[in-house]
């Protein structure tokens, strides 16, 4: 009996270093992402295929992610910041340059989406999803489909227009309607935009945040300024709704995949990014997430299922007039001030 126990103990001791070695060999990638932003099944596929373990954590806003990266000791390997946050993190030297030779599937990315101002050469980021701002309208409540941004200033839809209670978005669209850049900090242009929004306020039913989606689904208003992701959500629930990006152009936004400088396994992180760019994986994630994707191979693979979505397919010409929000830094305050002036002018 004693002998058996001793042998077992010896065996156990002999195995320990082996187990340790195995544990050391197995790399764990810390992936930090938005909620509902990846199909969990694809993570399992990656783990199975590569033997790399994934530790998956979630955040709710870019700012949360930024603060966590800046202030905490946790090292993350893959993150999904939005355009303006990519710009800021590049500026603050928080991102690693990517090695595209190690990521052959990045060839699948549509070149149309590879010249964004937040990272002009895409040295630090691979676009993951994209979206636009546009007009969501109720086809039974409008006389004709909105032709341009003026529809949101149309007196026929008095008290049937929803705008966003969000300074950058609403002022940005007012600028775009007037033919200016939505990143303008030119006082004359901003004043013009402000006056146009004050004039519009009499027609506006409400300045909404998240509750706007329910209002559009229930038919509370005829027209609303929305993000494409929300438009998709509403159209799925009320087929009378439709979405259009006005031809003057709009905001184009991206969420990109990046590797922070704190990463302990950059090579494996890039392998994961490459994996996400594979056509079938990107298609699977599109079906789960619902945001438009910049992956042309995946779009081709999905065929009509993707092409039928008006939300994900604004015309090329419109898209070329869309702009990405740049990080305005302290100038954000100018927008905050103007916005407060607009909403306090109502009463």
């Amino acid at each position: 009996m004693k002998k058996v126990l001793l042998t077992l103990l010896a065996l156990y001791l002999a195995l320990c270093p082996l187990a340790l070695a195995a544990a050391e060999e197995q790399v764990t990638l810390n992936v930090y992402n938005w909620g509902d932003y990846i199909d969990p099944d694809t993570l399992a596929v990656f783990e199975e295929r590569t033997g790399i373990r994934i530790n998956y954590e979630l955040y709710e806003t870019n700012e949360d992610m930024y603060t966590k990266l800046k202030k905490s000791k946790t090292s993350y390997d893959v993150i999904f910041p939005s355009d303006y946050m990519v710009e800021r993190m590049i500026h603050e030297e928080m991102l690693l340059p990517l090695d595209y030779t190690a990521m052959p599937y990045t060839q699948n990315i549509d070149p149309r989406f590879l010249n964004a101002s937040y990272d002009p050469t895409h040295a630090y980021s691979v676009p993951y999803t994209w979206g636009t701002m546009g007009i969501l309208y109720n086809t039974t409540m409008v006389d004709e489909a909105p032709a341009d941004w003026d529809a949101l200033w149309d007196a026929r839809y008095d008290k049937s227009i929803l705008m966003l209670n969000s300074p950058r978005d609403t002022i940005g669209i007012a600028l775009k309607r007037l033919g200016h850049s939505l990143n303008s900090i030119n006082p004359t242009e901003l004043e013009e935009a402000k006056q146009s929004l004050i004039a519009q306020s009499a027609l506006v039913l409400a300045y909404v945040v998240d509750e706007g989606k329910d209002k559009m689904v229930s038919g509370e208003a005829a027209l609303a300024l929305v993000w494409s992701g929300d438009a998709q959500y509403c159209i799925e629930r009320n087929p009378e709704l439709a979405y259009v990006v006005p031809p003057e152009g709009s905001n184009l936004f991206f969420d990109a995949i990046c590797v922070p400088t704190s990463s302990k396994h950059p090579a494996e992180a890039m392998r994961f990014i490459d994996f996400l760019c594979e056509a079938d994986i990107a298609a699977q994630n599109y079906e789960y997430v619902g945001y438009a994707i910049p992956n042309s191979a995946a779009v081709e693979l999905m065929g009509d299922a993707y092409a039928a979505s008006a939300v994900s397919n604004p015309p090329d010409e419109t898209l070329s007039r869309c702009e990405v929000f740049t990080n305005l830094g302290d100038d954000t305050r100018i927008y905050d001030r103007i916005w407060t002036e607009i909403i306090t002018s109502i009463y």
Binding site: P167, A206, Y207, V209, T332, D336
Partner: peptide, 25 residues
């Protein structure tokens, strides 16, 4: 005030929240 007033009746609380949530100030 945001929900019932539809953002058209801003109160001081809304403007404070705006500083933390949107203006990042």
């Amino acid at each position: 005030s945001q929900l019932m007033g539809g953002g058209k009746v801003p109160l001081i609380g809304d403007i404070i929240q705006q500083q933390f949530g949107k203006a990042n100030d």
